[in-house]
Amino acid sequence: MYVAEAKKDPAQPSDRTPYEIGAVYRAHAQTVARWAYRLGGPAIDIEDVVQEVFLTAHRLLPEFRGEAKITTWLFRITQNQVRHQRRKLRFRQFLSGTATDVIGQTASTKPTPIEVLEQRQANATIYRVLDGMSDKYRTAFILFEIEQVSGEEIATLMGQKVSTIWVWLHRARAHFAAGLEKLERAEASRAESPSTAPTPKKPNDPTPSASS
């Protein structure tokens, strides 16, 4: 059994030693990956986001004065990177003319065991609805309802007052409910009158006609 020595901030060895990007990475990489996954959804390249977050953090590290916790600072960078990636994804979809097709949470280098079908569908549905929301409501909703972060912590992470966060969460919940109802109605009407148009092929489909 191996145990670790607990530290308040493992990335900073002492008060006098400045942060070093390698130590920051080792201490917070998994947390950033988790945020990227949650904020970005299944279509995001998590590894890409994590790498960009820490490269950006390295560039901005000299300006980090420690007024906020380093996790808060990293969260803001992660948020921006995810926003940037999602924008790129939407632009690519716009150019290619295909609908969003969520292929699941598999990291490209690591296939998972048999995914429970309901998990994939639930994931796809939730993020489809979330994609229709503004960034701030979307982030607040994900952190509160999915990640189970308290309102006060969300306020710290997002740099807002707690009362503002509650207002956002109320609105986010209302928007999510409306979006979910709309999606359910659309799927119900599609089920009643199936379309004759071909369904878009999943990206990275290994079948010969879609080989890369």
């Binding site: 994590v50 820490f54 990291a107 998972t112 639930a122 994931n123 409910a177």
Partner: peptide
Amino acid sequence: AAALIQRIPKPPPLASSAYLRIEDEI
């Protein structure tokens, strides 16, 4: 909505190979 949220999977941790590769890159 709550039922959907309860069903979504936990985020997978970064694979060891990805963790080391990104660390190399950084």
